[in-house]
Design a protein around this nucleic acid. Structure first.
Length: 206
DNA sequence: CGTGAGATCGCCT
DNA sequence: GGCGATCTCACGT
């Protein structure tokens, strides 16, 4: 159930996002604030490639003020605001200028359960971080934290020593080119309660 | 459990 | 001006 994780260097994240994404399943991301620490174990992610390569990516059309962080160093936080109310979190992937990232779509709380519950009143424990916007609220990460290094305080990110088994399918919420079966870059841990409820389509790996 | 609608505003064409 | 890398609540099964 709990995976053995370890802190790794930045070069681990400087690889193709489609390769990196499944390796992040089972990772533990922690965030410290004055109110305390919340840590989550990642159960679902999506890979986004860079400029010109991936029509579903915020970076597809080149650098803008919003996506500039994606063009920077790996393992930093790309946070974006959407639907007029939600913040979602990505781990920047690849080398400088590659503008790739991995969206954190779902997780389970493994530390700071009381604090996470306070941040999402009324939510069941299972739903605390199940979904990209919910995850950012449970961790207490504001949009303004965008650009932060996830390998330095107040964050910490540890990855599994041994990759976990996973399944993949089309990315959620990505319509038009970039969506559908041509980009099966959503990855999740089968049966994990932290996988978002919105879809299931599958091809399994091991 | 599934579907459907409304909320709400920054980003980029 | 149109549309999101979404969520919650209401209501039907």
């Amino acid at each position: 159930m709990s995976t053995d994780v370890a802190v790794v260097g930045r070069e681990f994240f400087a690889r193709d996002p489609v390769e990196l994404a499944p390796l992040l399943l089972g990772s533990v991301l922690a965030h410290d604030t004055d109110d305390g620490r919340v840590a989550v174990r990642i159960s679902e992610v999506e890979a986004y490639r860079g400029v010109g390569e991936d029509p579903g990516s915020h970076a597809f059309r080149g650098m803008t003020p919003r996506n500039a962080v994606m063009f920077g160093e790996a393992a930093h936080l790309y946070a974006y605001f959407t639907y007029g109310m939600h913040t979602c979190l990505n781990v920047v992937a690849g080398r400088r200028g590659e503008s790739a990232g991995v969206l954190l779509r779902g997780a389970t709380v493994v530390d700071g359960l009381e604090l996470a519950r306070r941040r999402r009143p009324g939510a069941s424990d299972r739903d605390l971080a199940r979904g990209p916007a919910r995850l950012s609220i449970a961790l207490g990460v504001p949009l303004s934290a965008g650009g932060s290094d996830l390998l330095a305080p107040p964050f910490s990110l540890a990855v599994p020593r041994e990759p976990v088994g996973f399944e993949s399918g089309p990315r959620t919420g990505v319509s038009g080119a970039g969506g559908g079966a041509s980009f099966p870059w959503r990855f999740w841990i089968p049966g994990d309660p932290g996988v978002s409820p919105y879809r299931r389509h599958a091809r399994s790996h091991e």
